[in-house]
Design a protein around this nucleic acid. Structure first.
Lengths: 230, 230
DNA sequence: CGACCATTTGATATGGATCAAGCGATGTGG
DNA sequence: CCACATCGCTTGATCCATATCAAATGGTCG
């Protein structure tokens, strides 16, 4: 199971952040906060589990390179992906003792691992650390809220929103290099792979996007996509 | 959907409504925490707005009596209700400067109003307050996560989950007194009122519930509902 | 080359939305 | 106090978006 080297590399090569001030709101940047200070780096291979749902939440994680998905398996076997985490993103921060979602590497990834107890103890002493932890959770809440709103929209709207979301985090804002599969996208958007695939084809037919290859998408008409993103 | 209906409901906040109930008897609430200490009580009439989306988030609120809904209006006019807040629940806590959702009283309600800046200042000094604020946001996040999972389920599953959720918070766990309209339920579950109504009828036909009146629901077979709640 | 996996495309089924009408409770004005 | 308008809810008929089932295509690797 060799990783798709080209994809993995291009994904991780883009960890630097330049804000080429488009029409975008200021994006949460990799926190230069307390999470930098401690912890060890770990590497995970494509599709490798980082932690399982319900496991003790001993650590907090920060993506250094690659991409991580967090998800739940529903009782009917479906998988719902809650988020794709990219370099700079923190994930796995819980206030309870267990991870409420599972986490896996989408591509070969490296993550920074920090002991939660350390952070919590620091937070008790340093109000700035406490504020950072709160901020992280609040940001996660915002993400979840907008994801909830996504799930009540049409397939076109969901896919368009997804593409814009991915484009926002890529440095070439008009080309998206997808490191996740159609199944991942489907499970993120609450659709089937067939619907995701068909919708992309449709968007290409209406010239909103271009599909040079299945994992590379060029945004031809971003305002049309935003329009859809009702 | 029926944006007109949704909007009409809140717009029709009867101008004749008793707005004068400024001084209700303070009902002692069980929830502990720093939020008890400060703040004034305010009363809101049914369907009255407590704050709008995008308004400065100057205050944090705690339900004393009644019920509050928080919601967003989407660009296509649909309304998505994020939560129904009942006595003891805190709502309107933001980390940014604006309310990301709007809030309205579902029934005549009284809420405790606390200045956010006070809380934040306290949190900077007292790590226990800081932890409480974090906890509140984390709890909201959990709620949002499970709501997200709801939205990818079938109509029956959503309605069943809703009933169980409401039953859990009622004192007679097997009878639910709904204070919100079918439209509210629909906008909470991402369905139409017709589908909500039909689904309730179905559940009654399969003897899972009983419908003595439209706002009163008896849970006859909770395990069947939980089953549905896949 | 051939097997395998991811993706696309096609045909059909179906759950929930939409459009439309009926019904029961509640309140209002004559 | 009744007749009637109104409102919230239910029920019926039909439509449509997406799921499901099925097969073809294409890319990757041994």
């Amino acid at each position: 199971m060799l990783p798709q080297t080209s994809l993995a590399e291009s994904a991780s090569a883009r960890s630097s952040a330049r804000r080429a001030a488009k029409d975008l709101p200021p994006k949460p940047q990799p926190l230069a906060g307390p999470l930098e200070l401690v912890g060890a780096q770990m590497a995970f291979a494509r599709n490798e589990e980082i932690y399982g749902e319900g496991e003790p939440a001993e650590y907090v994680y920060k993506v250094v390179s690659g991409m991580v998905r967090t998800y739940k398996i529903l009782s009917d076997g479906r998988r719902q992906i809650g988020a794709f985490h990219q370099p700079g993103d923190v994930f796995g921060l819980e206030i309870g003792d267990e991870h409420s979602f599972a986490a896996e590497a989408v591509t070969d990834s490296t993550v920074l691992v920090i002991k939660r107890s350390t952070l919590v103890a620091q937070a008790a002493r340093d109000s700035e650390v406490a504020r950072q932890l709160w901020l992280l959770t609040a940001r996660e809440l915002e993400r979840m809220q907008s994801h909830m709103l996504l799930l009540i929209k049409s397939a076109q709207e969901r896919v368009a929103a997804f593409l814009l979301e991915m484009a926002e985090r890529s440095d070439d804002q008009s080309t998206v290099e997808l490191s996740m599969s159609r199944q991942d996208i489907a499970d993120y958007l609450g659709l089937t792979i067939e619907t995701v695939s068909r919708t992309l084809t449709q968007l290409a037919e209406t010239a909103a996007i271009e599909l040079p290859s299945s994992r590379r998408i060029v945004l031809r008409n971003r305002s049309a996509l935003k329009q859809l993103n009702a």
